[in-house]
Amino acid sequence: MSTHTAKESRLGAWIAMAIGCTYFLLPLIATFEFSLRMKRGEYSFEAYKVVFEDPQFQATFGYSIVMAIATIVVGVLLVVPTAYWVHLRMPKLRPLVEFITLLPLVIPAIVIVFGYLRMYNSSSFIPLTGSERATDFLLVCSYVTLSLPYMYRSVDTGLRTIDVRTLTEAAEVLGAKRATILLQVIFPNITSAILSGAFLTFAVVIGEFTMAALLDRPAFGPYLQLIGANRAYEPSALAVIAFIVTWASMGLINVFGSNKHARPTR
C-alpha cells in the first residue's frame, strides 16, 4: 500500500517537473530555433555571426564585463569586512543590516537612479555625471547597490559556516592584526561564498538596463534593447547569449561552491 503511494507521489513529482521544464525550456528552445532562421530555408548561426561581428556588441559587452568586474571588486571590499564586523562585534544588528541590503530588491532601480541623478548631477556639490569616468564610477556604485542583496547574502551564508569569533580570537592570540586575519583566515574560508556572490553580481550587471540607460553609458543592457527594437533575428541570438552567460555564472557557482579544503570547524 505504502509502496503504491510512494510510486504515485514519485509520478506526481515527475509530472510537476516536466511541466516546469516545459514552461521554462519551451520559450528558450523556440527563441533558439528562431535565432537559427536568419537565412531563408535553412538553419544557420548567421544571426550569431552578425552579432559577434558587430563592433557595438563587442564594445558594449566588453564595457559591461569591465563594469561587472569593478562592481565585484568594490562589492567584495565593501561587503566582506562589513559582514565580518557584524558577525564579530554586532550580531544583534544582523537583522537590520540584512534589511538594508535587501532594500534594492524593493526599491525599483529607476527610483535609485533618479536619486543619483538628483544628488550627483553636473550642477550638484559632487558632480559625478559631469565626466565619463565619474559617471562610470557612479554606475559601478549603483551596480554595487543593485547586487548588494546577492553579495551580502552569499557572504553572510559563508560566514555562518565558520566560527568567525573563535577563529578571529585564535589568530589574534597568535599575534595577527585585523587585516591579516581578514586576508589569511576569513577570506580563504569563505572563498566559495564570495565567488557565488561574484557570479550572481556578474549575471545581474551584464544585462542591466535601467541604470546604464539613464546614466547614458554604453553598456550591454541598452544595446540589447536597441537591437531588440530594430532587428528580427539578432535579438533572439543575443537573448540566447545572455542566457548562456547567466547559466555559465550559475555553473561556476556550483563548481566553486564545493570548497575542497575548508570544512566548518563546528
Binding site: D163, L167, A170, V173, H261
Partner: peptide
C-alpha cells in the same frame, strides 16, 4: 591588545584554521 601579549591559547572548539 591581545596580539601584543604573547600568550598561547587553546580553545574548546580547537579553532584550527580550516584552510
Amino acid at each position: 591588545p591581545t596580539n601584543q601579549r604573547n600568550v598561547g591559547m587553546v580553545f574548546q572548539s580547537y579553532a584550527l584554521f580550516p584552510n
